[in-house]
Amino acid sequence: MESKMNPQDAQVALAAVEQSRSDIADRLVTPWWYHPILGLLVGGLGAVAGSGARLAVVWGAIAAFGVGVYLLATAYRRLTGVWADGMSGGPRARRSVTVAGIVGVAIMGGGAITGLGLELWWPSTVAGAVIAVLTVVWGRHFDEVLRSELRESA
Rank of each mutant, 00 (worst) to 15 (best):
W32Y: 07
V29F: 08
T30H: 04
G60R: 12
V42Q: 01
G66Q: 06
I37M: 03
P31H: 05
G66V: 04
G66A: 13
L41C: 11
P31C: 04
V29K: 12
G46I: 13
V48S: 09
V48Y: 11
P36C: 01
Y34Q: 02
S51D: 03
A63G: 11
S51C: 10
F65I: 08
A56C: 01
A49G: 04
L45I: 12
W33V: 01
W33R: 07
A53E: 06
G44I: 09
I62N: 10
I62D: 09
V58D: 11
V67A: 14
W33T: 04
L40H: 04
G39L: 06
L41H: 06
V58R: 04
G39H: 05
A64G: 11
W59Q: 15
A63N: 11
V29W: 12
W32I: 10
V57Q: 11
I37G: 01
L71R: 08
A47E: 03
L38P: 04
A61G: 08
F65Q: 02
A49K: 02
F65A: 03
L40Q: 03
A56K: 14
G43A: 06
V57E: 12
W59P: 10
G60K: 07
G46K: 10
G43V: 05
A64H: 02
V42T: 10
H35P: 00
P36D: 01
I62P: 03
W59R: 12
F65N: 05
A63Y: 04
Y34N: 01
G68H: 07
S51W: 01
G68A: 08
G66P: 07
L38E: 10
L71Q: 13
H35T: 01
L40I: 11
G66E: 05
G68M: 13
V67N: 10
W33E: 00
Y34D: 02
L38W: 08
P36S: 02
L72S: 00
I62Y: 09
P31I: 00
L71V: 07
V69I: 15
L45M: 14
V29E: 06
V58K: 11
P36I: 02
A64R: 08
